[in-house]
């Protein structure tokens, strides 16, 4: 399923990459990046392949117990968490970072039904 959503996202990003002048259709997403300056791969690569990295890593970690590698959802949260845009949530979450692009690409992600999007560094803040 993630592969499917991944494919959709790719299409979405490809569309987004076409230069669009202001006022043409839906504005391009401008996600808050959090404190991330340099990701584990070049930004373009991450944009296209982050879902594949995550999918691969998830199987490796859950079934083979491989931990501490560079693609970890927990690390995504730590770097890219920003103050949650929803007023009722007072915490640093991945909500703002993920939501904007995925909304733009019309992709619903299934990560945060189980994984917490809340950064550990926003201690005390809860969903």
């Amino acid at each position: 399923m993630m592969r499917l959503t991944g494919g959709l996202l790719l299409v979405g990003l490809a569309l987004g990459a076409v230069p669009v002048s202001a006022g043409d259709g839906v504005p391009l997403p401008t996600p808050a990046r959090g404190k991330g300056t340099q990701c584990v791969e070049p930004t373009d690569t991450m944009r296209r392949y982050h879902m594949d990295y995550l999918l691969h890593q998830r199987d490796e970690t859950v079934h083979r117990g491989i931990r501490g590698t560079k693609y970890a959802l927990k690390d995504c949260v730590e770097c890219h968490a920003t103050p949650d845009p929803r007023p009722e949530v007072r915490a640093l979450t991945l909500y703002g970072f993920c939501k904007e692009c995925h909304d733009y690409a019309a992709v619903s992600i299934d990560c945060f039904g189980c994984h917490t999007p809340v950064s550990a560094s926003s201690e005390g803040g809860s969903q």
Partner: peptide, 25 residues
């Protein structure tokens, strides 16, 4: 909501003692 980062869990799935696999690892 409010899952622990090392112990993801959610609606509609089955779960059980993990022997604290995150700690053991």
């Amino acid at each position: 909501g409010g899952q622990k980062p090392y112990s993801p869990r959610g609606k509609g799935t089955v779960e059980s003692c993990t022997l604290c696999v995150h700690r053991v690892d």
